[in-house]
Amino acid sequence: MITFVLSLTFAFVWAAITGSATLHNLILGFALATLALWIVRDEMSCRGYFGRLGRIFSLLLLFFKELALSAWKVATLVVRRDMDLKPGIFAYPLTVTSDFEITLLANLITLTPGTLSVDVSPDRKTLYVHAIDCADIEATKRDIADGFERKIMEAFR
């Protein structure tokens, strides 16, 4: 956190010195500040920050891959002649606990292939997910647990 604030400050200093406060100049300043802080990462004892940044980035990458895949899957499903669907709602036991993580996971689940989060139980232990193909629920659950949930825990803990 302190590293983030520091990079932000450096970005503003960069913008002030170069004399233009446009958005990309700020972004460039931020990138430069992050790079500079990364060089002195051992002296600053902020190793975790860059690892976390990388993990958030990998979560983002996974998300876009799944989004593209999911749109494609819906497309192939819809143009099929026979609509042999086995839809249903299954309960997914949550491992993540905080509100932010549950929200993120629910949103990610909605945008992944064949699943749509419907509701969270009042005690925040289960997430109800509507799946377009309920033939193999255990595999779907395993996919979510090993994919998004693990990555979210890695990125935000």
């Binding site: 839809p87 249903g88 709602i89």
Partner: peptide
């Protein structure tokens, strides 16, 4: 849910 649905845990 539609009749084809095979389960509803809710």
């Amino acid at each position: 849910l539609c009749e084809q649905s095979i389960r509803d845990d809710m």
